[in-house]
Design a protein around this nucleic acid. Structure first.
Lengths: 325, 325
DNA sequence: TTGTAAGCGTTATCAA
DNA sequence: TTGATAACGCTTACAA
């Protein structure tokens, strides 16, 4: 491997001079700098990251921990993270599915971490944070030093969803939940139920799902059994709403007519459904950006806001039938 | 930061003894080993990766370079890669979208690399390989030392697709291609056309697409203009086939009846279409596994096969209408 | 079985 | 403006 020492030999200078030249310091004359850079180029020199990291105690890499790579969802969010990191000269390492690379955090292979993975134990995050590692979480609240959160406005979104659903004036309202250990699901459900309680005396039914298309199918069966003809459904994510669209017609129920539906997440499929799905939207890209910015500020010792919440908004499409706004 | 030295102090031994104990060497007595490990645990010691990497000149990390995180496609493939790596004690670093982390390869931050990204220049791969880095490519052929390829059986798959399509006895055959710079598209198109030439004298039309749903829409328009009533279409990927399904009915053409369709990739949506999409399948997970295995063998100096090709098979569903097999 | 010490490639301090 | 040299945290001959 060609190292800084080889360049020094070839250029007839010391390794420190080479180091200065490579790091564009103004402690060397422009001409020796130029000469050294040329030689480095000729020898196809590339710095050894391990050496640099060891010395500087900084890697300029950040670790991002997600549950899986599945779904359109992560794509945009990660893209937002990656963009901000790139702009600030950080590299992104992604660990998915309980990867062993979590160890990168205490081993100082990353300068900080972003967590969006409910399988990543809170206790572990707290341990790492206590050891001085900077972490931003996107899926829970952790109130210890060195941890910040950038959260989705689940409650506000759920309230928007319920309010929107009620404009369609359904005879009864159904909530289809995510898995019971999902923080998102819990928050949406609770805020939605509270809102129903405040604003309406329509009957409410909660069907337990798990954020998959399949549980949408299952929910459709249950709704058909209810026998109502004018049901309003708040599917706590769009995937389950898609499951409804798939199954309801087989049961003689028309989405948007017999069953009014509002989803959550603004999945890319929504507009393609018939009728197009009304849903709660938020900027996935923006979420990623904000998260990355927060982490960089923490790492670089700048002021950060302790809790940040991402705004949601309603996307009105046809799945509530014809309502006036 | 608590290091090996702190443990040595506390245990009243030298740092080398600690190092041996931590690396489970049999050069230390079981009891001192135990004592040292306990102290390490109590101090919450975690090894500093940079130090180890620097000394060993091995990181046990491998870099994977993909175009983007989008699509169900990558999910399974990456999962296959990740699984094999985990089993062999390697960590996975993923760089997407022309990330700067390509530099990890020459900087020896990764022991090897996997490339599935047509934006990753072949010249760069060759340069890195010449510098001694081990690389496996999944989307092209590169005949230089230190590079191996694990490729999809595009040609065999295309032949299967054409043969299957011809069993439906269409009056004319249409190919919808991917982007012209896609190696996959080129190989599928060429093999498909050659097969048509050999086995049939039906007229053939090539419509240029770009592997997106949108270009499926566009192709549907062109097909409608042809005025045929019994067209066979080989969409070079499933996404474009989905585009056909979306648009054809608007033009008065029924998929599976007026237009027989065969796709490629076995997208998860296929079974949900009406009629379900006949397509060419291959194991995405297996592809990832094979790729990772190949790379590990290269890194560990074991024998490897120069070129490996992944098998494809036809998934018969309803989009060819009623055909006898 | 344990300790001493060299060295991995880089950066940074201090002298020259 | 440059050079000698000591770290950074760890592994590993070699010596004891």
């Amino acid at each position: 491997m060609v190292g800084i020492r080889d360049i020094a030999d070839k250029a007839g200078v010391s390794i420190s001079t080479v180091s200065y030249a490579l790091n564009d310091s103004d402690k060397v004359t422009a001409e020796t700098k130029k000469r050294i850079l040329e030689i480095a180029d000729k020898l196809h020199y590339t710095p050894n990251l391990a050496g640099r990291m060891l010395k500087k105690q900084k890697t300029n890499m950040i670790g991002m921990y997600i549950a899986s790579f599945g779904g359109y969802f992560y794509h945009h969010m990660i893209d937002g993270v990656a963009q901000v990191l790139r702009e600030n000269n950080y590299e992104l390492i992604i660990g998915s599915g309980g990867s062993h690379s979590r160890e990168f955090i205490p081993q100082h292979l990353v300068d900080g971490a972003i967590v969006l993975d409910s399988d990543f134990p809170t206790s572990l995050i707290e341990r790492y944070a206590n050891a001085g590692n900077q972490i931003v979480v996107m899926d829970r609240e952790i109130k210890v030093p060195n941890v910040r959160q950038v959260l989705l406005g689940n409650q506000a979104g759920a309230i928007q969803a319920v309010d929107t659903l009620l404009t369609a004036n359904p005879d009864a309202v159904v909530f289809i939940t995510g898995p019971s250990d999902s923080n998102d699901s819990q928050l949406r459900l609770q805020a939605g139920l509270t809102r129903m309680d405040q604003c309406s005396d329509k009957p409410v039914l909660v069907i337990h799902g798990d954020f998959t298309v399949d549980s949408g199918h299952h929910a459709a069966d249950m709704i058909a059994k209810m026998g109502h003809r004018n049901v309003g459904v708040f599917a706590l994510n769009d995937e389950m709403a898609i499951g409804l669209y798939e199954r309801l017609p087989e049961l003689g129920l028309k989405p948007g007519v017999d069953v009014k539906i509002v989803g959550f997440d603004n999945d890319s499929l929504g507009p393609y459904l018939t009728p197009a799905l009304t849903t709660i939207d938020y900027s996935k890209h923006g979420w990623g950006e904000l998260t990355a910015k927060t982490l960089i500020n923490m790492i670089e010792g700048k002021q950060t806001v302790k809790n940040q919440v991402l705004k949601t908004k309603v996307i009105h499409r046809g799945s509530l039938g014809e309502t006036e706004c």
